[in-house]
Design a protein around this nucleic acid. Structure first.
Lengths: 166, 166
DNA sequence: CGCATTTGCGAAATATTATTGCGCAGCGCG
DNA sequence: CGCGCTGCGCAATAATATTTCGCAAATGCG
C-alpha cells in the first residue's frame, strides 16, 4: 500500500499540487488530462500512500515580524543515540527552531531558526541552545538574504529520469 | 496595502492555513469564529497583501526517489555584489539546489540540495557547483535524518508577543 | 455629544466544486 | 475467447465558494 508505482499522470498531479496546493480538483483534472472523479481518487490515493504529507500556506514570516533567520551548527558532547534523540526532542519543543537536521561530518546538527529580532535570538541562543545539556559547540550564521527558497521535489529532474529509464 | 495591521482573527487564519492549506473556507470560518463570507474576504486580503505567498502540497521527496539531502557551504572568490548575484542566479537554475541563503561570517552561502542518489549529487558537486565560476570552496554535509522540518512561522511565539504588547 | 462615514459582519441567493454511484472499455490470464 | 481486475468518464447529489445586500458597531469630526 505505501508504494504502488506512479504513472506520469500521478507525477503530474504531484507537480501541480506542489506548485499550487489549492488548485481545485476540476482545474487539476483539466491540466493532467483526465476527468475530475478519477483525478480526485488519485489525489486521495497519493495522500493515503504518503506521497502527499499535507498542504500548507506559505506565510511570509518577515511580514509577520520575524525579521531574523539564522542557521546554527551544533556539536554535541555525546553522540550516543539516546543523547542524539534527546537533543532532537528538545529542538522539536523550541518554537524558534523550525528545522533540525542531523548531519555527518564534524557538525552534528544544523538548525534553521527564526526570531522577531536579534536580541530575541541571542537570548534563545545563550539561555536555551548553548545552555542545553550535552551541547558542546554552537556556531551561528545570520541569513542576509534568500536567493532561492523552494523546498520540495524538482519534478523536472524526476521526469527526465523517468524518461531516461524508458 | 502591503501592510495593514493584523487582528487576532487574521493571525488565526494564517496559523490555520499554515497548518492545513486545503482547509475549506467553511471549516476555517468555523474555527476562527466568523461566518464564511468575511472569512473568505480576509483570506483574499491576506493573499493580496503578501502575507500568504501561496499554497503547496508537501510532497515526500524520499518516496519519489530523492534519497539524498545535502547541505553545502559555499565560499566565493569575490563578494562583489555582481558576483554574489551571479552565483545566486546560477543556484536558481540548478534544480538540485532547493534553497540558497546568503550568510554573514566565513561562509558566503548555504545551499540545501536534494538528489536521487549519492553519485548524482557527486556529479553535480564536481561538475557544476565546485566548477562554477568564482566558487572558491565548497564543504558538504550529508543529512542523516530530519528531526524537525517545519518551515513557517511559529504562531505561538507570535501570539505571546502580541499579548505581551497589550 | 450627535450625525456622517467607514469598516466589517452575516443572511440569502447563485455559481462552482467535490463526491458518489454506476456502467463501459482495456488488459492480463486461464 | 471469456472472466476478473483496474481505471475511466458520465450523470446525479451534496458541499463549498462567491456574490449581493442590508445592518450594526466603531471612528471622525463639527
Amino acid at each position: 500500500m505505501p508504494s504502488a508505482k506512479l504513472d506520469p499522470i500521478d507525477r503530474m498531479i504531484l507537480a501541480e499540487l506542489q506548485a499550487d496546493g489549492r488548485m481545485t480538483n476540476v482545474e487539476l483534472a483539466k491540466r493532467v488530462g483526465i476527468s475530475a472523479p478519477p483525478c480526485l481518487r488519485r489525489v486521495r490515493t497519493l495522500e493515503e500512500a504518503g506521497f502527499i504529507r499535507g498542504y500548507h500556506a506559505d506565510v511570509d514570516a518577515r511580514a509577520l515580524g520575524f525579521e531574523v533567520q539564522v542557521f546554527a551548527s551544533v556539536g554535541l558532547v555525546s553522540q550516543a543515540e539516546a543523547d542524539l534523540s534527546a537533543f532532537e526532542e528538545r529542538c522539536r519543543n523550541w518554537p524558534l527552531v523550525r528545522e533540525c537536521h542531523m548531519l555527518n561530518g564534524e557538525v552534528d546538527f544544523i538548525l534553521k531558526c527564526v526570531a522577531p529580532d536579534l536580541s530575541t535570538f541571542q537570548t534563545f541562543l545563550t539561555e536555551q541552545l548553548t545552555a542545553a545539556e550535552n551541547v558542546a559547540s554552537v556556531k551561528t550564521s545570520l541569513v542576509i538574504r534568500d536567493a532561492k527558497d523552494e523546498p520540495g521535489v524538482p519534478f523536472d529532474v524526476l521526469e527526465a529520469r523517468m524518461a531516461a529509464e524508458a
